[in-house]
Design a protein around this nucleic acid. Structure first.
Lengths: 344, 344
DNA sequence: GCAGTTTACGCAACCGTTTGCATAAAGTTA
DNA sequence: TAACTTTATGCAAACGGTTGCGTAAACTGC
């Protein structure tokens, strides 16, 4: 599969030379420019086809000051949520003839910043970012603004008004989940939330309060725990809840990975899942169907659609940057969550 | 976060103009070229720092005919195996100042080819590919050769000699697994293999035979089933085995996802996992630790190392393309697998 | 003080494509 | 047929950085 003879890709100049016409004519002919005659256009396109001509995107991107690459920074691609979102981004990008540069931050702010700067330097035309859960400083994102590189955040977004983003409104899903529990007569509902600095955490907590209130349940501050989402943090949080005198009969967990840890601990304490205690979780890990002890329900957040939409917004921003009238409004698209019952 | 004033990145020409020297001098100064005086070098580097100069990689890649991008095509990033391999690739790439373009083939040959061609056109400097399980035609990979774009395959590799690749030798892990079973007195060992066209399947089958032979076990062809790795295929395969008069007491499954299906079916038939029947699997899904009924052991294939090594090989190929003496040998690195016992 | 060497820098071309402008040829009108 | 318009094409610059080559100026040795 290794050949020694160099095979160089044909260029516009090559075609021009062969047809004894100017490169500019070739360029225009390839773009069906009206000022080029039908005959010339055909001759050029025919030869281009024969030679297997492909425009040198490197040259074009240099000339046009566009790389036709977008950067995507995610915490972690092994989470199905993110890899599915990436499909959405990829699919949208490929219809727009863009490539996707990927970087996994692993929730490490330094790594996140390093990736971001490297993408900036390689002149991506825009970025889609799901912020790592340990990121507290957003200066490097602001930096991109100076270089006119648009960013669209998705899912895990900074808490500020002046950004473009897509996210999922957990309200409907979460309220339905609480209603469902109450219908079953389960009223002692706890929440294990994620890191306090996350918008997602604040949101979950707020809706949790709403859900209790709408069902005339009283709020007990002991029923809220926080975790940094590390395994130890998770175990600590669930243990605290299970130790309570008034042990909760249902627990809403910040995400599926936390739910895994929580369920494991509950089982260790000989609690029967979905009998002694119920779990509700976010993000719908597909692996649940293989597990006997799984959350009663998960709240679906439509990662594919979120990714696709984020890319759509990004491309509209990129296009508007080209035009004389750049958009000034912030594009913010919020999807509605949906309650998925994983048990029959 | 949106500003209207355009902020243009400083260029070498800009610096040259300000210091009233030639662009070429600036370029050399920035590269610490020996023919530039200490004073000038310092002046240039100081101003560059002040202006926040960053070389325009677009221009460099155009001029140098290198994109400083490598393409990675994988079946699926939601499989932890692949996303972990991607870390390895990413890390190696970032030390080499390369970016990573990603494409998920979803085991769809058309999609795989589309991604490959699009990456070719955007002039990636090389590619790392794990071939989709339905790919039977390798013409598009050969095409890249014509354009002098090196490819390194990893994990799922085409069955031919003339390629660069990294892979994992399952021999040690698999033989140890069989030995372990035999030690426990389990001798009726079945194999559910993947699609017949895959190298990986052939390899597994061969070692399976070896393992039986070394332990003086007789081979029964009924104990080998194949699956296309779809859910239905998996279920069919395991059902066939469990229906056998001489029901196997251990099953080696092609991968962890198949193991999940297999275990589920076995449980439906009221078999107790790790008592009535044992499973051994490949690739070590981290989720196992949360499951009560899991394979007795998994065979670790070191995806991070494989990815890292694949990238290392790719960069050596890219470098050797630059030099006058391109490498002719095929670089093939094979890691040794390791048996991981997931049960205490 | 002169030939030879070294040092430090500038000039200009180049990579492939695009695009504003100029212009020759052809066609149109009075 | 002169003047004007239209059509089809070419010329040349530009994007930003790199690099071979040329060359003043400074330095060396005798």
């Amino acid at each position: 599969m290794m050949s020694t003879n160099k095979y160089t890709q044909p260029t516009i100049k090559e075609i021009a030379k062969r047809l004894k016409i100017a490169p500019s004519t070739v360029s225009r002919a390839l773009h069906d420019h009206p000022s080029i005659s039908w005959v010339t256009t055909m001759r050029v396109q025919k030869l281009a086809q024969e030679l297997n001509y492909e425009p040198n995107l490197s040259a074009i991107s240099f000339k046009q000051r566009k790389s036709f690459n977008i950067g995507v920074i995610l915490p972690n691609l092994s989470e199905v949520f993110f890899s599915t979102a990436l499909y959405g981004i990829e699919d949208m990008a490929s219809t727009k003839k863009y490539n996707v540069l990927i970087g996994q931050s692993l929730d490490n702010p330094q790594r996140e910043e390093r990736i971001l700067l490297s993408m900036k330097n390689s002149r991506v035309d825009g970025m889609i970012v799901s912020v790592g859960k340990n990121t507290i400083n957003y200066d490097h994102f602001d930096l991109l603004q100076k270089y006119n590189i648009p960013i669209v955040f998705f899912d895990c977004i900074p808490e500020r008004k002046d950004i473009h983003f897509t996210a999922c409104n957990l309200q409907i899903g979460m309220l339905m989940a609480i209603n469902k529990l109450v219908e079953k007569g389960i009223t002692n509902i706890a929440l294990i939330n994620g890191p306090k600095q996350l918008v997602a955490s604040k949101q979950r907590q707020q809706i949790y309060f709403q859900g209790l209130k709408k069902n005339n349940l009283s709020y007990d501050e002991k029923l809220i725990e926080f975790t940094d989402l590390s395994k130890e943090g998770n175990q600590q949080a669930i243990s605290n809840l299970l130790r309570l005198e008034n042990r909760p009969t249902a627990i809403i967990t910040f995400n599926d990975y936390l739910a895994l840890d929580a369920i494991a601990i509950a089982k260790e304490q000989n609690l029967v899942i979905n009998k002694d205690i119920f779990f509700i979780s976010f993000a719908n890990l597909p692996i649940w169907e293989y597990m006997d002890d799984r959350p009663m329900a998960s709240i679906e957040q439509f990662p594919y659609k979120q990714g696709e939409q984020a890319a759509k917004i990004l491309f509209s921003l990129i296009d508007s940057l080209q035009s004389d009238q750049p958009t000034i409004e912030y594009q913010q698209v919020i999807f509605e969550s949906k309650l998925i019952t994983t048990l029959q």
